[in-house]
Amino acid sequence: GETKIIYHLDGQETPYLVKLPLPAERVTLADFKGVLQRPSYKFFFKSMDDDFGVVKEEISDDNAKLPCFNGRVVSWLVSA
Rank of each mutant, 00 (worst) to 15 (best):
F52W: 09
M48T: 15
H8W: 13
V73G: 03
K46C: 12
L9K: 05
N70P: 04
G71F: 02
F52I: 13
D50V: 10
I5G: 04
G53P: 10
R72V: 15
S47E: 02
K46N: 12
D10K: 02
F32S: 04
A64G: 04
K65E: 01
V54W: 14
L66N: 01
A64P: 04
W76G: 04
G71K: 00
G53C: 14
I5K: 00
A24R: 06
M48P: 13
R72T: 15
I59L: 04
K19T: 15
V55R: 15
V27T: 02
S79M: 05
F43P: 00
L29Q: 00
T3F: 07
D49V: 08
G34C: 10
L9M: 09
A24W: 09
L36F: 13
D62Q: 05
G71A: 02
P67I: 00
I6M: 06
A24F: 06
I5W: 04
D49G: 12
V18P: 06
H8P: 09
D10N: 06
D10G: 03
A30K: 13
M48E: 13
S75G: 09
L22A: 05
N63T: 11
P23I: 11
R26G: 07
Q12M: 13
V55A: 10
P23V: 02
K19N: 11
L36S: 04
D31P: 08
V35K: 08
S47R: 15
V54L: 11
N63G: 10
C68T: 14
E58C: 03
V54Y: 11
K46D: 12
S47F: 13
D50Q: 12
R38C: 14
F69W: 10
K65I: 15
W76H: 00
W76Y: 07
F44S: 07
Y41A: 07
D49L: 05
N63D: 10
V54G: 11
L77R: 01
E58R: 03
L17F: 15
K46T: 08
S79G: 09
F43S: 07
W76R: 03
S60L: 06
T14Y: 00
Y16A: 05
A64Y: 01
A30Y: 07
E58T: 07
A80H: 11
G53R: 15
S75E: 02
P39V: 11
V73S: 04
A24V: 07
C68N: 11
T14A: 11
E25C: 12
I6G: 04
Q37S: 12
V73K: 00
V73D: 06
F44K: 01
V18T: 08
E57D: 01
V27Q: 01
L9G: 04
F43D: 04
V55E: 11
V27L: 08
K56M: 13
G34E: 14
V55W: 10
A80S: 13
S79P: 14
